[in-house]
């Protein structure tokens, strides 16, 4: 089933700083909720292990993430897919764009489209949007904190 989510967040750092952090695997790992490993596999590719809980389904997703259409320091696209074993699978992407905010800082816009299948779709159908939103909020809250460090 498909899930879409869009939003924007104001970050207290300039565009170049935000861009650098967005390309730092250690930062991403610290910010992605449930992320256990994030290892670079190529110039723009990563392998990741993420533990997720959607309603009654809890699973460890193993997958690959690739950064595409890199346009420093304005944005990129993240495309990825993961297998959660019996829990099912997830695949999708997010378009991330950065712009200067009025009065300082950076506006990050995201536009996510994802598909999930298997048990998460069967049991979590009506929870997925909520879980996705919660995870996105958590990511940017973490990311915002790192910006302030």
């Amino acid at each position: 089933m498909a899930m879409t989510m869009t939003g924007e967040v104001h970050l207290p750092a300039d565009r170049q700083t935000v861009w650098d952090k967005l390309n730092d695997p250690e930062v991403l790992k610290a910010c992605i909720p449930g992320c256990q490993t994030l290892d670079r596999t190529g110039e723009n590719g990563f392998s990741a292990v993420v533990k997720l809980k959607v309603g009654p389904v809890s699973a460890t997703f193993k997958g690959n993430v690739e950064l595409q259409d890199l346009d420093p320091p304005n944005g990129y696209k993240i495309a990825g897919q993961g297998e959660g074993g019996v829990a099912g699978f997830a695949k999708g992407g997010a378009k991330v764009s950065l712009s200067d905010a009025e009065g300082g800082g950076t506006i990050l816009r995201y536009d996510v489209e994802a598909n999930v299948g298997g048990k998460i779709a069967q049991l979590g159908a009506r929870l997925i949007d909520g879980v996705a939103k919660k995870n996105a909020d958590a990511f940017f809250a973490n990311f915002g904190k790192i910006m302030q460090q």
């Binding site: 089933m1 498909a2 598909n115 299948g117 298997g118 779709a121 069967q122 049991l123 159908a125 009506r126």
Partner: peptide, 14 residues
């Protein structure tokens, strides 16, 4: 079923 063939009504929630 959605167009990807996922059963969206697979529990008594749905």
């Amino acid at each position: 079923y959605n167009k990807d063939g996922q059963l969206l009504t697979a529990s008594y929630m749905d």
